[in-house]
Amino acid sequence: MSPPRLALVPGEPAGIGPELCVRLAQQPRGDCSLVAFGDGDTLVAAARALSLPLQLLPADAVATRPGDLPLHAIPNAVAVEFGRADPRNARAVIAALETAARACLDGAFDGLVTGPVHKAAINDGGIAYTGTTELLARQAGCDVVMMLANAIVRVALATTHLPLRDVPDAINADSLARTLRIVDAALRTRFGIVAPRIAVLGLNPHAGEDGHMGREELDVIAPVIAALRAQGLHLEGPLPADTAFLPAKLRDVDAVLAMYHDQGLPVLKYSGFESAVNLTLGLPYPRVAVDHGTALSIAGRGIADPSSLFAAVDTCARMARKAVAA
């Protein structure tokens, strides 16, 4: 079986994404092959800033030496100055994401790895953009779930980037059941877990205290859990969020579903931010992103930590192999 072929998108060209891709190209890989989708001049400039070798190859070539990187060229509109995001390059950033994702949908690639993008620069460039997760979901025409993961824990989100006052209204039986089914299916097909165990957090402190501190657990979360258990899913909850992440509890579960962004992600990032990755579950292909921003303030200085990108590639390659095996 040949190793999976992964599409690699550096992200915001003025940020640390290009230099992280250059560092990635220095590592020999037997678990996958990589093709970058982006601007060649920016990658060359990043390599020069890092004093590292970089040989850009045709997209259908095979990397054989440290510094080799096959490239599907998507030129920027204007030359890049590291540290200064230019909205004129927004269309190239989006084109790289859409082209790479389309190649995955068409079966030319087995997975997608993405670097950090700059939302403000894209919107200032005249493109309405809320996030890459949403962009990929629209393109593929499917429902998705955001999950972040490191070596300690996997945390999926029932809601993502919402104001806290809007979260309770966004949690309803249909959306919660759909989210749990997507997480369960992804753990089976992308991670090879035969009977995944998912811990479901409550929304309120102490999971509502039997309705004394909110009724969402009684009226929505618990009934959904009961219905899905009857369908064969292995779910535990609703659990109080303040104790669900204790090491003894995590040993018994394969993933945790948090009700909102800051309920679950601070714990994950504290337990291993450098190696954390961001996954989009529910797509027809595995997509894994770095779990950090563009870091414009240090771009081009050669001090950015590549750990999250390395972990993203490792995770995406494993997920792609599991999907092929299934």
Rank of each mutant, 00 (worst) to 15 (best):
136 L>M: 07
83 G>K: 03
40 G>W: 08
125 G>R: 15
116 P>R: 15
111 G>V: 09
75 P>V: 06
111 G>P: 10
59 A>I: 00
56 L>W: 02
60 D>L: 10
119 K>A: 05
153 V>A: 12
107 G>E: 05
98 E>D: 15
77 A>V: 11
63 A>L: 01
49 A>D: 00
95 A>C: 03
111 G>K: 12
47 A>T: 10
98 E>G: 11
51 S>T: 07
129 Y>H: 12
126 G>P: 14
42 T>V: 01
65 R>Q: 01
115 G>P: 06
103 A>G: 03
101 A>D: 08
71 L>S: 01
141 G>N: 13
60 D>Q: 12
51 S>F: 02
140 A>C: 12
137 A>I: 07
76 N>G: 00
89 N>G: 07
135 L>G: 09
59 A>R: 03
83 G>Y: 03
150 N>W: 05
50 L>G: 02
149 A>I: 03
114 T>S: 15
123 N>I: 14
51 S>M: 06
147 M>D: 09
59 A>C: 02
55 Q>M: 06
114 T>I: 13
42 T>Y: 01
101 A>N: 06
152 I>V: 14
98 E>K: 14
97 L>A: 13
87 P>T: 05
124 D>A: 11
54 L>H: 09
109 F>L: 14
120 A>V: 08
84 R>P: 02
126 G>R: 15
122 I>R: 11
56 L>D: 01
81 E>I: 02
151 A>H: 12
141 G>P: 13
128 A>V: 13
95 A>L: 02
86 D>S: 09
86 D>H: 06
111 G>W: 12
129 Y>I: 06
57 L>C: 05
135 L>K: 07
116 P>S: 15
102 R>A: 15
152 I>T: 13
133 T>H: 07
46 A>M: 04
134 E>A: 14
99 T>E: 10
111 G>R: 12
41 D>R: 15
91 R>C: 03
88 R>I: 04
51 S>D: 05
91 R>M: 08
124 D>Q: 13
151 A>G: 09
130 T>W: 07
118 H>V: 08
101 A>E: 05
68 D>A: 00
94 I>N: 08
116 P>T: 14
146 M>W: 14
78 V>N: 00
83 G>P: 00
55 Q>G: 04
130 T>I: 10
90 A>W: 08
108 A>K: 13
